[in-house]
């Protein structure tokens, strides 16, 4: 189920200071980028998501300055959200049935920053003042989503794997983390998928060994020989069984019927 990560490799930097997390995560990214088998290396959550920074001025400019504009500007925060979140109305049909109607401006119709500046912000439905009169609107960036774990902020990089098994690549990822240097105080670096993967394989390996340990005495009792029991558990035996199984397949069987030249000669001599 991929354990919450969309890709096989995820490196998470966790700490209280988001800016410091980001700086250290970028160092790690530089080292991970040197691994040729990694693909699609990227931030799991965008940190520079494009935003519009709207700063409401306490003393607005324009015609409303003359009559307590600062106080009126406070209305703008709520009215600014209306075009995006919509106006909710509760319509009633008869006495019992009620349903909600939401009216909002489609987001694709508000494209440039000027569209935002032209949003009317007075609560009595008047067309002016506009948001541009009471606030400054500028382009900015902000984290698209801040992930938290144990009350600490997390910056994580994800990557796909190409041409190498994950188990072998895990060592390279760990070496890259070592090259990135020791993490600053209060910051921890963790791999998300790889430890679970390794733990699963450790469990499978232990299970296999335990099952062999359980089967061995049974085989020894059946053959009445420890040697035969060990031979039947050995890799060589498994390989020879596989070869005999292949020889039993129709393609191999037809080949197996042919006699070798040496045997043919021996047969002719006997005759």
């Amino acid at each position: 189920m991929s354990f919450g990560s969309p890709t096989p490799v995820e490196v998470a930097v966790q700490g209280t200071n988001m800016a410091a997390n980001r700086v250290y995560a970028q160092t790690i990214r530089g080292e991970l980028a040197k691994i040729p088998e990694l693909r699609d290396l990227r931030l799991a959550r965008p940190l520079d998501y494009p935003t519009l920074d709207i700063t409401i001025r306490s003393r607005p400019r324009g015609p409303i300055r003359s009559h307590s504009g600062g106080r009126r500007a406070l209305h703008s925060r709520g009215h600014l959200l209306q075009p995006f979140h919509g106006t909710e109305l509760l319509a009633r049909s008869g006495e019992r049935n009620g349903f909600q109607i939401q009216v909002e401006i489609p987001q694709d119709r508000i494209q440039p920053a000027d569209d935002v500046r032209n949003i009317p912000v007075m609560k009595d439905g008047r067309s002016r003042p506009l948001l541009g009169d009471v606030a400054s609107v500028a382009n900015g960036t902000a984290p698209g989503m801040v992930e938290r774990y144990n009350m600490q902020r997390v910056v994580s990089y994800t990557a796909n794997v190409h041409g190498e098994p994950l188990g072998r690549l895990a060592e390279k990822v760990r070496e890259a983390l070592k090259r990135a240097g020791e993490s600053p105080r209060g910051m921890t670096v963790g791999l998300r998928q790889i430890p679970v993967f390794e733990e699963t394989f450790r469990g499978l390996r232990t299970g296999l060994l335990l099952s062999m340990a359980a089967i061995f005495p049974l085989l020894a009792a059946n053959f009445q020989s420890f040697r035969l029991s060990a031979l039947s558990c050995s890799r060589r035996q498994l390989l020879s069984e596989r070869q005999s199984a292949n020889a039993g397949s129709p393609r191999r069987r037809s080949r197996g019927r042919r006699e070798s030249p040496r045997l043919r000669k021996a047969g002719a001599n006997r005759r």
């Binding site: 189920m1 991929s2 919450g4 969309p6 890709t7 693909r39 699609d40 990227r42 994800t158 796909n160 190409h162």
Partner: peptide, 25 residues
Amino acid sequence: FEQLRTELLKALPSCQFTFEAGDIV
């Protein structure tokens, strides 16, 4: 995936593409 990575990077160099499993997670 490898072929798409190469072609998409040529066509849209300023964009980033990733390939993730389309599973329920």
